[in-house]
Amino acid sequence: MTRSAPRRSDPSSDRGQANLAALVVALIVLTATVGVTLGLAEGALAGADRQPADRRAAVASAERLIAADSPVTRRENVLNASALDSLSPERLVTLAPPLRDAAFVVRIDGRSVVERGDPTDGVSFRRIALVSSAEERTRTVAADGAVTLPRRTDSVRLEFNGADVETVRANGRIVLHRPGGLRGAETVSVSRSETLTISFDANATGTVTVTSTPERTRKTTLEVRVDA
């Protein structure tokens, strides 16, 4: 006897409707997740930017500054203190063209030497260098004796007013010779690696003024910060 079944919906038709709704909800959730993933991708791409152009400009400018043929160095990695003070942004841009349209600052031991603009968001690169300040030391020497300079120098200037000298020897090597007697002032380059002894020929008379430029060096850190 079939009692009329209670009018409750067939579970199979329940399945049909609920499935579709659940599917739609699931697809919406998936779309939202794809959106979130795209946002994360955007963030990752932005965070991976290591500013290669700025970094290269900083490295190249630092290298140009401490190179041997730079206008602010005496020799490689040895900076000239006075030339540094007179370095202007325009001269630096001529020396390092990558800085042409960029904001930059050059610091020596933390103190800013050249700057233009505000490079706070830029990349910085450091080099280790020596800053040398040379002062002149002058002494008057009798020409009939030899003189040993206590501090090493790379060049020495001799003035022969008031002396009659034909030959000058530096550490035994002849560096100046003029049979009629040396006149005026002469500059001689010598080696920085040796202590210098200057002697004259045996017949020399009078007094010679000897000027040397011993160097004082101190270690510094050169920092270049560039933001293009």
């Binding site: 499935n19 909800v25 699931a26 994360l40």
Partner: peptide, 30 residues
């Protein structure tokens, strides 16, 4: 009728959860 009823309703939810987990794993690699 009750057993098929349970399984069928939750399947899309499981599928969606698996899909979301895959997508987020890819995003984590970023």
């Amino acid at each position: 009728c009750a057993v098929p009823d349970r399984a069928q309703l939750s399947l899309p939810v499981v599928e969606a959860a698996v899909g979301v987990a895959f997508l987020l794993a890819v995003a984590a690699s970023f």
